[in-house]
Design a binder for these strands. Structure first.
Lengths: 152, 152
DNA sequence: TATTGTTATACTCTATAACTATA
DNA sequence: TATAGTTATAGAGTATAACAATA
């Protein structure tokens, strides 16, 4: 019997711990983003838009973020209304809209990243640098192995 | 600069990976619990009730699960309506109600644990047993270090 | 006064289905 | 026929405040 999947107490269950840890990080990140008028989901969209110089397709955003395309529409709407991103038509496909960060978007991201980094850092304080790397690697493989369809 | 907290791409961010991984596990677990009429949160309450022979305080449930006490009320209501747990008065404090699993609750748990175990196992398939242990340990320290106020 | 459980409410997140315009 | 984006809606999860009973 696998000792992980059948932990005899709930608090040893990987799924439970993932949920708890995720909740802690989401709350801490949202708190850090409060003054910027962002929340973790819109912040993620902004980051992806900033990372892609030529813009990102909404479908790609949905896939990377694990969201339904319909949810992405609302998040992009919100960022666009704030002037942080804009939708540009694609040359190759007129159905596709490329989400591109504006100058304001890049500027806000640069500030927000510092705050979020500090919040995340505080959450990870009990782990050594090596352990943090290890955790990231394990989580990455978990996500990439199960429907997590992003590059690299 | 800490290379973890300031990953240069979103998909390398620990918080993002935690959120994605947690979502995958929650979805898989909810799917496994569907036929039992449970979802991951009510299932967690049932497990904790089953683990404590003399019952658990709703306040303790809230603390362990990282939920507000008001949310616990609804989850316990749901389980009680299904006959899986019952609220018993405490001898020492008449404000306190002890949540205790019924025989039906224990029986359902025994079945559900198998299904959930299989679902979790599938999600963890890409990691070796050692890596699964390691992940559990790292997550446990993350949670216990940040407001996660449960035993051990 | 403080704490346990409860009720109420509002907001965010998630899940689906159906529609449009393009391909 | 399939895909990108959109709209709409309902349900689940989260966050707060206020209250009654008890400590």
């Amino acid at each position: 019997m696998d000792p992980i999947t059948n932990a005899h107490v709930l608090t040893d269950d990987v799924g439970f711990l993932l949920s708890r840890a995720s909740g802690l990080f989401v709350r801490a990140t949202n708190a850090a983003l409060l003054s910027y008028g962002l929340r973790v989901r819109s912040y993620s969209v902004l980051l992806l838009a900033c990372e892609a110089a030529e813009g990102v397709t909404q479908r790609d955003l949905a896939e990377v973020l694990g969201l339904d395309p319909s949810q992405v529409v609302l998040l992009v709407d919100e960022l666009a209304d704030s002037g942080l991103v804009e939708r540009r038509p694609s040359d190759s496909d007129r159905r596709t809209k490329l989400v591109v960060a504006t100058a304001a978007g890049h500027a806000l991201r640069a500030e927000a990243v510092v705050e979020v980094g500090a919040a995340v850092s505080a959450q990870l304080a009990d782990l050594t640098g090596t352990e943090q790397f290890l955790l990231r690697d394990l989580l990455g493989r978990l996500v990439r192995g199960n429907g997590g369809a992003f590059p690299a």
